[in-house]
Simulated assay, not measured.
Amino acid sequence: MRQTNERLGTPRAAGIAGVVFAVLMAIAIVLVRVALPEGGDAADIDLDAGQRRAVRTALEVLPFAGIAFLWFMGALREQAGEGEDRFVSTVFLGSGLVFVATLFGSAAAAGTVLGGDQDHSSFGRQFAYALLSTYAMRMAAVFVFTASAIGRRLGVFPRPLIVLGYLAGLTLLLVGSDVPWSELVFPGWALVVSLYILRGRRPAGAGPGSAA
């Protein structure tokens, strides 16, 4: 009974972690976009006190967003169980880990804008935006693709959610840094998936009698 309860609690853990990640990630993206509206191209613009405060808050939020994402990813992978495809699950895990690594790297680079050295600040701003909008979002696209594929194979996600995942993945993969605010597609997708999980959906084959 204890093992059954633990497995039934995993979807809820994934849902909660996903909501936390989506909210924190969206907050960080909005703060950075508001503080640095021109992205890495405005390298010669000095930040005022309000912009620095916004960037500092975003940098404080991002580590917790990354931690929540790791929990979200682990809980989703647990749901796949023995039915997961090894190739797809490896890409799923690898893309998620690389996403977190590039997310933390972009946060570290963005921290240079808070320093007084203009040269380092300019380089850090451009480097942070390149990591986030180009590399991190591409890895997020791969993560969304593989998560949707796993959900389709196992019958965990309904067709509309799978289609939404593929559309979100294509947007993150092809649009990237060309369209400002496109980074919000990823936390938006994570929020929709998490809310679906929190509604109490069970994996395929987990009927009412499986809790006995």
Rank of each mutant, 00 (worst) to 15 (best):
G81I: 02
V91M: 12
D46H: 03
D85E: 12
L8A: 13
V19F: 06
G18I: 01
P37D: 05
V61W: 00
R7D: 08
G9C: 07
L31Y: 01
A54Q: 15
R53T: 14
R7G: 00
S89L: 12
L8G: 08
L62Q: 11
A43M: 10
E38C: 11
G83H: 12
M25F: 06
E78T: 14
T57M: 07
A43I: 09
F92K: 04
Q51G: 15
A13K: 13
F72E: 04
A49H: 09
E84W: 08
R77G: 10
D48A: 10
R52V: 00
S95M: 01
D41A: 15
F92L: 04
L24C: 04
R56H: 08
D85I: 06
V61N: 01
W71K: 01
Q79K: 02
G96C: 07
L8M: 15
A28Q: 11
A17L: 04
E84S: 14
L59C: 04
A54K: 13
R53H: 08
R77V: 07
V91H: 02
M25A: 15
D44R: 09
V32C: 10
A65R: 07
D48M: 04
L8I: 09
R52S: 05
S89K: 06
F64I: 06
E38M: 11
P37L: 03
G50N: 13
